[in-house]
């Protein structure tokens, strides 16, 4: 900072100190004298000069080490029908991974295992269908779980259920209930994903194919919801119906066969894992794939 700038800053500091605690209301009404007017105006000009001086190129009083690295240009990518179909396929593989992991861990048995096997078979068929559509459009089918969704949702969720000694995560107290809760959320998000793609797909025929798969994911979710909440299959929340048909609870349950009147794109929360010292369990909010989890073509 130059000598003149330092003087201006000192003058400004004096003005600020002189006006601290002043009764501006009465002062403005009674005696905003010509002299004070010029003083205030001078302070404004001086402060402006100070700012200008600080921003001048030749004034290098602020310490700086090295030069900043130029920003990386963002990749110029386009969300095409192929990208959406590849992402849908990747989500099917996320579901396939979950059901295969649950089967190999032997968590489910009896009817629950039978249903899970059916869901696994359906997701394999869906993956084949979306892969086939991808290739019909000239794209390359993606045959792996969505890496980002696997990292932020699937793997943490499975660790919360079966435990992970390496990171000190204890297995859940009720793995069957947790698997059903995870499957409910995963199937709900799968249906929501296809629903979300409808206005994004350019070809109406593709939209029909997509929602045809999406409604089957919704059926999976509904079946699990009917097992988790058999007494109340259709939620009353948000409906204009008579009071005697409404649920008494203040908040909706975590699962229903039919949770809403329209399919939503909102996150699906799932509570998993062992309780911590204060009795709290982990909540994971599953969301539909966003721009940073789409499967773009190389």
């Amino acid at each position: 900072m130059s000598h003149s700038n330092r003087q201006e800053l000192q003058a400004l500091t004096k003005i600020v100190r002189a006006t601290q605690g002043a009764d501006f209301g009465s002062a403005l009404q009674t005696s905003l004298s010509r002299r004070r007017f010029f003083l205030a105006g001078g302070a404004t000009i001086s402060f402006g000069a100070l700012l200008a001086a600080c921003g001048a190129g030749e004034s290098t009083g602020i310490a700086r080490i090295g030069d900043s690295v130029p920003d990386n240009a963002l990749a110029d990518v386009e969300v095409t029908d192929v990208v959406l179909l590849r992402t849908a396929t990747s989500l099917e593989y996320n579901a396939i991974h979950v059901y295969e992991a649950v089967a190999s861990a032997g968590i489910l048995s009896g009817d629950a295992a039978t249903l899970a096997a059916r869901f696994l078979s359906d997701h394999r068929a869906h993956a084949e269908a979306t892969s086939s559509l991808t290739e019909q459009l000239g794209g390359t089918a993606f045959t792996q779980p969505n890496p980002r969704l696997q990292t932020i949702y699937v793997e943490p969720a499975l660790k919360l259920i079966v435990g992970d000694s390496g990171s000190g995560i204890k297995p859940t107290a009720d793995p069957v209930a947790d698997v059903l809760a995870l499957a409910y959320a995963l199937e709900t998000i799968a249906g929501s994903t296809y629903q979300a793609y409808i206005p994004k797909l350019s070809d109406p025929a593709l939209r029909g194919s997509a929602i045809g798969i999406g409604e089957q994911e919704a059926r999976h979710a509904a079946l699990i919801g009917s097992l988790l909440n058999p007494d109340r299959l259709v939620s009353s929340f948000g409906l204009s119906i008579a009071a005697q048909y409404r649920e008494e609870a203040d908040v909706p349950a975590l699962a229903y066969a039919v949770p809403t009147s329209f399919g939503t794109l909102s996150p699906a929360p799932v509570i998993l894992g062992a309780a911590n010292e204060s009795g709290t369990r982990t909540t994971i909010d599953l969301e539909t794939p966003s721009l940073n989890s789409l499967i773009y073509e190389d």
């Binding site: 206005p199 939209r207 194919s209 929602i211 509904a222 039919v258 809403t260």
Partner: peptide, 25 residues
């Protein structure tokens, strides 16, 4: 699969998703 306008397609998609759940209930 036949609607051209995306507003209508998106609305009907959100309806189909829930009507499929109705079948299960």
């Amino acid at each position: 699969g036949e609607l051209v306008g995306t507003d209508g397609a998106a609305l009907m998609a959100s309806i189909v998703i829930t009507e499929a759940r109705h079948c299960v209930a």
